[in-house]
């Protein structure tokens, strides 16, 4: 406690970001330290789990130390530690979990494990101070494309998800093939701004009537076939047009289904979360489509969309308040479900 405020330290190492943050009362980020490994993994065309694990180990102490320093607090003033225990890369997750447990034990601080996906939703509690459940959440990231109903704090009901590739994965694959490289999401977003999104007719995959699930692998194959065909015909490929048309086919379906779910469950707000939630076209389309139905769209700022410790701290705070039991035998669960 400091100045009557409950302090939570959040630790996140599920993929290629080593991150820690101190959050007051579950809502105010007093620090938000993110050490990205993206420059290292770019040389490999994607995240290499063994290398990610090694880098997390080298950086975790300083990231935690800086999160405390930036917030102007000592470890002894922390009331709760929250750490991502899944889903994610097992070797990466276990650095955060081992660090969190050692700190919890050394400093006598309760520790709760946080589901990374709950963290992405909680990023919105930091951005929008007035936001309280119930609401609908749309999570779009490298590994996830999910529509989730949030009836109360720390309760998430998954209504739909991808049956094959996540949206971010599809972006990464197509970006690689059109030579934009890794990470695909931001690069496609940038290239798409210079392109014509109606230039190539990529299909919109809605699946069965009323389904809230997604499928992007057919679209990805269609994009690869298109590129192959154009190259074989000796036609020059307009990378910006491919990026814009492909992105449109992905985000239009996502936006339509997210709005449909929000209406169906009678919610008035939809919050966006996850790395791909910072995609500018998805944000614009969500505003447009939800706006027509009188639904508010809330988005965290880009720094809170990426993996970070603040969102984990916020989710830990609400989990603890809802009665989550502190656990020094916490294990990493790479395939953790919602």
């Amino acid at each position: 406690m400091k100045d009557g405020r409950f302090l939570t330290l959040g630790i996140e190492t599920s993929c290629d970001e080593t991150a820690a943050s101190v959050v007051a009362d579950g809502r105010f980020a007093m620090s938000n330290v993110i050490s990205s490994q993206i420059d290292i993994h770019t040389a490999y065309g994607g995240v290499v789990p063994e290398i990610a694990s090694r880098k997390h180990l080298e950086r975790i102490n300083d990231v935690i130390g800086k999160a405390l320093d930036d917030a102007g607090v000592s470890a002894g003033e922390i009331d709760l530690i929250g750490v991502t225990y899944g889903p994610g890369l097992v070797g990466a997750l276990l650095i955060g979990v081992a660090a969190a447990k050692a700190m919890a034990y050394a400093c006598d601080i309760p520790l709760v494990g946080v589901n990374h996906m709950h963290g992405h939703i909680a990023a919105n509690y930091l951005e929008h101070q007035e936001l309280e459940p119930p609401f609908m959440a749309l999570i779009v990231s490298g590994g996830h494309t999910e529509i989730v109903n949030v009836p109360e704090y720390n309760k998430c009901e998954k209504l739909g998800g991808t049956r094959d590739d996540a949206a971010g994965e599809a972006f990464d694959k197509v970006a690689r093939v059109i030579g934009l490289g890794y990470p695909g999401g931001p690069k496609i977003d940038r290239a798409a701004k210079e392109g014509d999104r109606e230039s190539i007719a990529f299909k919109r995959v809605y699946l069965e009537q009323g389904s809230l699930d997604f499928s992007f692998s057919g679209l990805k194959t269609q994009a690869l076939n298109y590129l192959n065909q154009e190259r074989q015909a000796g036609r020059e490929i307009n990378v910006n047009n491919v990026a814009a048309s492909f992105q449109e086919a992905v985000v239009e379906v996502i936006a339509d289904k997210a709005v449909m779910a929000t209406e169906k469950y009678g919610q008035k707000r939809i919050v966006m979360a996850g790395g791909v939630a910072s995609n500018s076209r998805l944000r614009a389309l969500m505003e447009e489509k939800a706006g027509r139905k009188g639904i508010d769209v809330l988005k965290p700022s880009p720094v809170l969309c990426t993996d970070n410790g603040a969102m984990i701290a916020s989710a830990a705070y609400y989990a603890y308040r809802s009665g989550a039991k502190p656990d020094l035998e916490l294990d990493a669960v790479p395939g953790l479900e919602f």
């Binding site: 694990s53 090694r54 180990l57 975790i60 102490n61 935690i64 130390g65 070797g91 276990l94 650095i95 081992a98 660090a99 447990k101 050692a102 700190m103 034990y105 050394a106």
Partner: peptide, 12 residues
């Protein structure tokens, strides 16, 4: 990694 991380954090 589990051992080294645990000791590094305990030390810190």
């Amino acid at each position: 990694r589990i051992g080294v991380t645990t000791v590094r954090i305990m030390s810190q």
